[in-house]
Every structure is written in structure tokens, then in C-alpha cells.
Amino acid sequence: MSGGRWPGIALRLFVVLVLQTAALGWMIYSRAELLRNGTEVTLTVVPVDPRDLFRGDFVRLNYAITNLRPGVIGGDSDFLPNDPIWIVLDTSLAGAARPTGVFKHQPPTLPERTAIRGRVQSVYDGPPPIDDPDGCPNPCRTVRVNYGIEQYFVPEGEGRNIENLRNDSRISVVAAVDSDGRAAIKKLLIDGVERYEEPLF
């Protein structure tokens, strides 16, 4: 197994160590860059099914833009699971950003608009919503999107508290979004007041 034809084992394992450390460093660096340079977007956090029990020390965050109805918002609608998806957010008003279009490809950049990228997790065609039957024509298509910002790790013991606040709809998140549409959680707001802000490193 340990033949002498290769360069020495020390050199080989050093290369492995450097590559693996570089991978970890890249994870952290790319996120720091994202937080530093990304456009800030405020996202409303919606309650999660209360049966989804608190797991470990992270809180699951579902956003108002997690479940989208392309038929209502406009744009493309022929999504399949696993497809990339771009959501154009209107950031012109104070408060939470509003989705103005969903697309299969990266849309051109416009002023006061930020495009966030996600991955389609599932697509569901169902009856129109009861509260607004005309708002979404039958069959009403709902696309569930994963943005990679659905988990927030909190110090041990604080998770339950934040979960309760989440289920009372008192939490919103400020995400940084870069020009490729990638997002990272920058701040956690409770009742619109900054509660946690992420350091870069």
C-alpha cells in the first residue's frame, strides 16, 4: 500500500490537508464576501407547522417566499423539482420585500429589484385557495423553493424561544443576496428590531 513510487507520504497527506482546509476556508470566505457585498433584502418569516419539533439547536425558517404561486406572481410556471429558480424581489418599499416574478433563468438586473436564486424542491397543482378562489386559477400551482437560508443555529437553550416568536409571526430576516442570486442570513429581526447580527468571520 505504501510504495515508494509516489512522492513521500508526508507531501501527499500535506496536499490532502491543504485541499480540505481550503475547502473549509472557501465555505467561510464565500459567505463573508456575500455578507459584505450582497444587497440587503428583508424577508418575512412565516410560522412552521407546530408539529415540526425543535431539532437540536437550530431553528427552521420558512419564508413568505418559500411557497410561491407562479400563476399569481407572474413569470415562468413550468417548473420541475430540482430546477433552479430566480425570484425577483421588489425592495423599493420599507419592510419585507415582495416577489414580482419567478423565472427559470437569471433575469436582467433592474433598479430596486433584487433577484434571489433557489432550487425547486417540489411542485404541487391543487385547487384554488379557499380564501381567494379567483386569485389563483385552477389548477393552482404552488412551487416550494429552497434558498439555502432555512436553518438558523442559535446558542443552546434559545431555540425554543425563537421558535415561539416565529410561530407568532414576529420574526423577519435580513438576507444578503449577491449578483448570482445566492443568499445568506445577515440579521435576525424580532418585531422589526435587530436581535442577532452575523459577524463576517
Partner: peptide, 19 residues
């Protein structure tokens, strides 16, 4: 070492909220 690399990925992802 390779197993620890996996643990490191998970712990970094957790520390920096990278899901």
C-alpha cells in the same frame, strides 16, 4: 482525518448558518 473533515464541514456550516 477524512472523517474529521466531514465533521468540520458540518460544524462550519452550523457556525456560519450555511445550510
Amino acid at each position: 482525518g477524512a472523517a474529521l473533515f466531514g465533521a468540520a464541514i458540518m460544524l462550519v456550516a452550523q457556525s456560519y448558518h450555511i445550510s
